[in-house]
Simulated assay, not measured.
Amino acid sequence: MKHGITIAFVNHKGGVGKTTSVHQIGASLVQKGFKVLLVDNDPQANLTFMNGWNEENETTIYDAIAEGNENLPVYEISENLFLTPSELDYASLELQLPTDPLGHFALRTILENQKKEYDFVLIDNPPTLGVFVSNALFAADKVVIITESSSLSAKGLQVVVDLIQKLKKGANKSLELLGLVLTKTSNYVVRRDTADWIREQYDVFETGIRQTVSLEEAAALQQNIFDYNPKSSGAEDYQNLTNELLKKLNIKPIKGKKKAVKK
Protein backbone atom coordinates (compact mmCIF):
# COMPACT_ATOMS: atom_id res chain seq x y z
CA MET A 1 0.00 0.00 0.00
CA LYS A 2 1.44 3.36 -1.01
CA HIS A 3 1.83 6.09 1.60
CA GLY A 4 1.62 9.22 -0.54
CA ILE A 5 4.02 11.05 1.79
CA THR A 6 4.38 14.61 0.52
CA ILE A 7 7.60 16.46 1.33
CA ALA A 8 8.21 20.13 0.53
CA PHE A 9 11.79 21.38 0.17
CA VAL A 10 12.13 25.05 1.03
CA ASN A 11 14.36 28.03 1.70
CA HIS A 12 13.89 31.71 0.85
CA LYS A 13 17.48 31.94 -0.40
CA GLY A 14 18.41 30.78 -3.88
CA GLY A 15 21.39 28.70 -4.90
CA VAL A 16 21.39 26.50 -1.82
CA GLY A 17 20.66 23.22 -3.61
CA LYS A 18 16.89 22.76 -3.20
CA THR A 19 16.29 21.63 -6.77
CA THR A 20 19.39 19.46 -6.85
CA SER A 21 18.29 17.80 -3.61
CA VAL A 22 14.78 17.08 -4.87
CA HIS A 23 16.22 15.67 -8.10
CA GLN A 24 18.80 13.43 -6.42
CA ILE A 25 16.64 12.26 -3.51
CA GLY A 26 13.89 11.38 -5.97
CA ALA A 27 16.30 9.31 -8.05
CA SER A 28 17.66 7.62 -4.94
CA LEU A 29 14.16 6.72 -3.71
CA VAL A 30 13.38 5.14 -7.07
CA GLN A 31 16.55 3.06 -6.80
CA LYS A 32 15.26 1.80 -3.47
CA GLY A 33 12.02 0.57 -5.02
CA PHE A 34 9.65 3.48 -4.45
CA LYS A 35 7.27 5.19 -6.85
CA VAL A 36 8.01 8.93 -6.83
CA LEU A 37 6.32 12.05 -8.16
CA LEU A 38 8.41 15.21 -8.48
CA VAL A 39 6.37 18.43 -8.49
CA ASP A 40 8.10 21.48 -9.94
CA ASN A 41 6.43 24.31 -8.04
CA ASP A 42 8.91 26.92 -9.24
CA PRO A 43 8.35 29.16 -12.30
CA GLN A 44 12.08 28.95 -13.03
CA ALA A 45 11.38 25.30 -13.97
CA ASN A 46 14.89 24.08 -13.13
CA LEU A 47 13.64 20.72 -11.88
CA THR A 48 11.77 20.33 -15.15
CA PHE A 49 15.00 21.00 -17.06
CA MET A 50 17.07 18.62 -14.93
CA ASN A 51 14.67 15.81 -15.77
CA GLY A 52 15.01 16.49 -19.49
CA TRP A 53 11.42 17.64 -20.00
CA ASN A 54 11.07 20.05 -22.93
CA GLU A 55 7.62 19.33 -24.33
CA GLU A 56 6.44 22.91 -24.95
CA ASN A 57 2.90 22.00 -25.98
CA GLU A 58 2.11 19.83 -22.96
CA THR A 59 0.27 21.06 -19.88
CA THR A 60 2.15 22.08 -16.74
CA ILE A 61 1.44 22.96 -13.12
CA TYR A 62 0.53 26.44 -14.40
CA ASP A 63 -2.37 25.08 -16.45
CA ALA A 64 -3.65 22.97 -13.56
CA ILE A 65 -3.57 25.76 -10.97
CA ALA A 66 -4.79 28.51 -13.30
CA GLU A 67 -7.75 26.47 -14.55
CA GLY A 68 -8.59 24.83 -11.23
CA ASN A 69 -8.18 21.31 -12.60
CA GLU A 70 -8.92 18.24 -10.54
CA ASN A 71 -5.53 16.69 -11.25
CA LEU A 72 -1.97 17.79 -11.85
CA PRO A 73 -0.43 16.87 -15.21
CA VAL A 74 1.95 13.98 -14.61
CA TYR A 75 4.47 12.56 -17.07
CA GLU A 76 6.59 9.44 -16.70
CA ILE A 77 10.31 10.26 -16.84
CA SER A 78 11.53 6.74 -16.22
CA GLU A 79 10.29 3.63 -14.48
CA ASN A 80 8.66 4.67 -11.18
CA LEU A 81 9.72 8.32 -11.60
CA PHE A 82 7.11 10.91 -12.58
CA LEU A 83 7.16 14.67 -13.05
CA THR A 84 4.72 17.55 -12.89
CA PRO A 85 6.59 20.16 -14.96
CA SER A 86 6.58 23.92 -14.57
CA GLU A 87 7.06 26.88 -16.90
CA LEU A 88 7.82 30.61 -16.74
CA ASP A 89 4.14 31.53 -17.19
CA TYR A 90 3.52 30.08 -13.74
CA ALA A 91 5.05 33.28 -12.31
CA SER A 92 1.97 35.22 -13.44
CA LEU A 93 -0.09 33.47 -10.74
CA GLU A 94 2.02 34.94 -7.95
CA LEU A 95 -0.17 38.03 -7.91
CA GLN A 96 -3.44 36.29 -8.78
CA LEU A 97 -3.49 33.49 -6.19
CA PRO A 98 -3.49 35.75 -3.09
CA THR A 99 -6.67 37.45 -4.34
CA ASP A 100 -8.50 34.11 -4.38
CA PRO A 101 -9.89 33.12 -0.95
CA LEU A 102 -8.64 29.57 -1.57
CA GLY A 103 -5.53 30.59 -3.49
CA HIS A 104 -3.12 29.35 -0.84
CA PHE A 105 -4.74 25.90 -0.94
CA ALA A 106 -4.82 25.39 -4.73
CA LEU A 107 -2.02 22.82 -4.82
CA ARG A 108 -3.30 20.99 -1.77
CA THR A 109 -6.76 20.63 -3.30
CA ILE A 110 -5.45 19.18 -6.54
CA LEU A 111 -2.71 17.01 -5.07
CA GLU A 112 -5.07 15.39 -2.60
CA ASN A 113 -6.63 13.48 -5.51
CA GLN A 114 -3.31 12.01 -6.65
CA LYS A 115 -0.80 11.70 -3.83
CA LYS A 116 -1.82 8.18 -2.80
CA GLU A 117 -0.81 6.89 -6.23
CA TYR A 118 2.81 7.39 -5.18
CA ASP A 119 5.01 6.40 -2.29
CA PHE A 120 6.53 9.88 -2.20
CA VAL A 121 5.63 13.27 -3.62
CA LEU A 122 8.58 15.69 -3.53
CA ILE A 123 7.82 19.38 -4.09
CA ASP A 124 10.52 21.75 -5.30
CA ASN A 125 9.92 25.42 -4.53
CA PRO A 126 11.16 28.86 -5.57
CA PRO A 127 13.57 30.82 -3.35
CA THR A 128 10.81 32.85 -1.68
CA LEU A 129 8.34 32.54 1.17
CA GLY A 130 5.42 33.70 -0.95
CA VAL A 131 2.23 32.15 -2.24
CA PHE A 132 3.89 29.27 -4.12
CA VAL A 133 5.72 28.14 -1.00
CA SER A 134 2.64 28.52 1.18
CA ASN A 135 0.78 26.33 -1.33
CA ALA A 136 3.47 23.68 -0.97
CA LEU A 137 3.47 23.85 2.83
CA PHE A 138 -0.30 23.57 3.01
CA ALA A 139 -0.12 20.53 0.70
CA ALA A 140 2.79 18.81 2.45
CA ASP A 141 2.96 16.30 5.28
CA LYS A 142 6.66 16.97 5.90
CA VAL A 143 9.08 19.76 5.14
CA VAL A 144 12.86 19.86 4.75
CA ILE A 145 14.87 23.09 4.78
CA ILE A 146 17.85 23.04 2.44
CA THR A 147 20.61 25.44 3.42
CA GLU A 148 24.12 26.08 2.22
CA SER A 149 26.76 26.04 4.95
CA SER A 150 27.51 29.74 4.55
CA SER A 151 26.88 32.78 6.73
CA LEU A 152 24.47 34.36 4.23
CA SER A 153 22.36 31.21 4.12
CA ALA A 154 22.38 30.85 7.89
CA LYS A 155 21.27 34.43 8.43
CA GLY A 156 17.59 33.97 7.57
CA LEU A 157 16.96 30.40 8.68
CA GLN A 158 14.86 31.38 11.69
CA VAL A 159 12.40 33.17 9.41
CA VAL A 160 11.79 29.92 7.53
CA VAL A 161 11.46 27.89 10.73
CA ASP A 162 9.04 30.43 12.19
CA LEU A 163 6.84 30.27 9.07
CA ILE A 164 6.66 26.49 9.28
CA GLN A 165 5.73 26.62 12.96
CA LYS A 166 3.09 29.25 12.26
CA LEU A 167 1.46 27.10 9.58
CA LYS A 168 1.65 24.06 11.84
CA LYS A 169 -0.32 25.93 14.50
CA GLY A 170 -2.81 27.14 11.92
CA ALA A 171 -4.03 25.60 8.67
CA ASN A 172 -1.76 22.54 8.49
CA LYS A 173 -1.49 21.05 11.96
CA SER A 174 -0.02 17.80 10.62
CA LEU A 175 2.98 19.53 9.03
CA GLU A 176 6.28 18.25 10.43
CA LEU A 177 9.73 19.74 10.00
CA LEU A 178 12.05 16.79 9.42
CA GLY A 179 15.16 18.94 9.75
CA LEU A 180 17.72 20.98 7.84
CA VAL A 181 20.11 19.65 5.22
CA LEU A 182 23.51 21.30 4.87
CA THR A 183 24.77 21.54 1.30
CA LYS A 184 28.06 22.62 -0.30
CA THR A 185 29.97 21.64 2.80
CA SER A 186 33.76 21.84 2.74
CA ASN A 187 36.80 22.00 5.01
CA TYR A 188 37.15 25.76 4.63
CA VAL A 189 37.21 27.18 8.15
CA VAL A 190 34.38 29.66 7.60
CA ARG A 191 32.08 26.99 6.13
CA ARG A 192 32.96 24.48 8.82
CA ASP A 193 32.33 27.01 11.58
CA THR A 194 29.03 28.07 10.03
CA ALA A 195 27.93 24.44 9.71
CA ASP A 196 28.77 23.86 13.37
CA TRP A 197 26.74 26.93 14.38
CA ILE A 198 23.71 25.77 12.37
CA ARG A 199 23.93 22.33 13.97
CA GLU A 200 23.96 23.95 17.42
CA GLN A 201 20.85 26.01 16.67
CA TYR A 202 18.68 23.62 14.66
CA ASP A 203 17.79 19.99 14.07
CA VAL A 204 20.13 19.10 11.20
CA PHE A 205 20.44 15.87 9.22
CA GLU A 206 23.69 14.10 10.03
CA THR A 207 24.42 13.74 6.33
CA GLY A 208 25.76 16.87 4.67
CA ILE A 209 26.22 17.30 0.93
CA ARG A 210 29.83 18.00 0.07
CA GLN A 211 30.66 20.58 -2.56
CA THR A 212 31.49 18.80 -5.81
CA VAL A 213 31.48 19.76 -9.47
CA SER A 214 29.91 16.40 -10.39
CA LEU A 215 26.51 17.55 -9.17
CA GLU A 216 26.64 20.65 -11.37
CA GLU A 217 27.80 18.62 -14.35
CA ALA A 218 25.02 16.07 -13.89
CA ALA A 219 22.40 18.83 -13.72
CA ALA A 220 23.71 20.49 -16.87
CA LEU A 221 23.54 17.16 -18.70
CA GLN A 222 20.02 16.48 -17.35
CA GLN A 223 21.13 13.37 -15.50
CA ASN A 224 20.92 12.29 -11.90
CA ILE A 225 24.22 11.84 -10.09
CA PHE A 226 23.79 8.07 -9.81
CA ASP A 227 23.75 7.67 -13.59
CA TYR A 228 26.34 10.37 -14.26
CA ASN A 229 28.97 9.51 -11.65
CA PRO A 230 27.86 6.82 -9.19
CA LYS A 231 31.25 6.79 -7.45
CA SER A 232 31.29 10.53 -6.74
CA SER A 233 30.96 12.10 -3.30
CA GLY A 234 27.66 13.59 -4.45
CA ALA A 235 26.22 10.15 -5.15
CA GLU A 236 27.46 8.85 -1.81
CA ASP A 237 26.07 11.81 0.10
CA TYR A 238 22.63 11.76 -1.49
CA GLN A 239 22.41 8.01 -1.02
CA ASN A 240 23.20 8.43 2.68
CA LEU A 241 20.83 11.38 2.99
CA THR A 242 17.99 9.37 1.48
CA ASN A 243 18.68 6.52 3.90
CA GLU A 244 18.56 8.98 6.79
CA LEU A 245 15.32 10.48 5.48
CA LEU A 246 13.70 7.03 5.32
CA LYS A 247 14.91 6.29 8.85
CA LYS A 248 13.27 9.48 10.12
CA LEU A 249 10.05 8.38 8.43
CA ASN A 250 10.39 4.85 9.82
CA ILE A 251 10.20 3.32 6.35
CA LYS A 252 12.38 0.52 5.04
CA PRO A 253 13.94 0.75 1.57
CA ILE A 254 12.82 -2.24 -0.50
CA LYS A 255 15.18 -2.83 -3.39
CA GLY A 256 13.65 -4.42 -6.43
CA LYS A 257 10.05 -3.94 -5.25
CA LYS A 258 7.50 -1.43 -6.35
CA LYS A 259 5.84 -0.56 -3.07
CA ALA A 260 6.89 0.90 0.23
CA VAL A 261 6.64 -1.14 3.37
CA LYS A 262 6.39 0.59 6.71
CA LYS A 263 7.92 -0.89 9.84
Rank of each mutant, 00 (worst) to 15 (best):
Q158A: 02
A66I: 00
K247D: 10
A91S: 02
N11Q: 02
N172R: 07
S153L: 08
T147W: 07
G26S: 03
K248S: 03
K115L: 13
A235N: 14
N46F: 00
R210Q: 12
A8G: 06
L38A: 13
V204W: 06
I65W: 01
W197T: 15
N187I: 00
D141S: 10
D193W: 02
A64W: 05
M50W: 01
K248G: 08
L95V: 08
R199S: 15
E117Y: 11
A140I: 01
V10T: 13
L221C: 13
L97G: 07
G52H: 08
N243K: 13
L107S: 11
T60V: 04
A140R: 07
E79Q: 08
L88N: 00
Q223M: 14
Q96C: 02
A220N: 14
D162Y: 03
V74I: 15
G208Q: 10
F49V: 10
G68E: 05
T212P: 01
A154D: 15
S151Q: 14
S233V: 13
K173I: 00
I5D: 03
E200K: 15
K247S: 05
E148N: 14
D89N: 10
L102K: 14
T59Q: 07
N243V: 03
Q114W: 13
N187S: 03
V189N: 00
N240H: 06
Q201D: 14
D141V: 09
K32I: 06
G15D: 07
N172A: 08
L47T: 04
A27R: 06
H12C: 06
S174P: 01
P73W: 12
G15T: 13
V161P: 04
N54A: 15
E112Q: 07
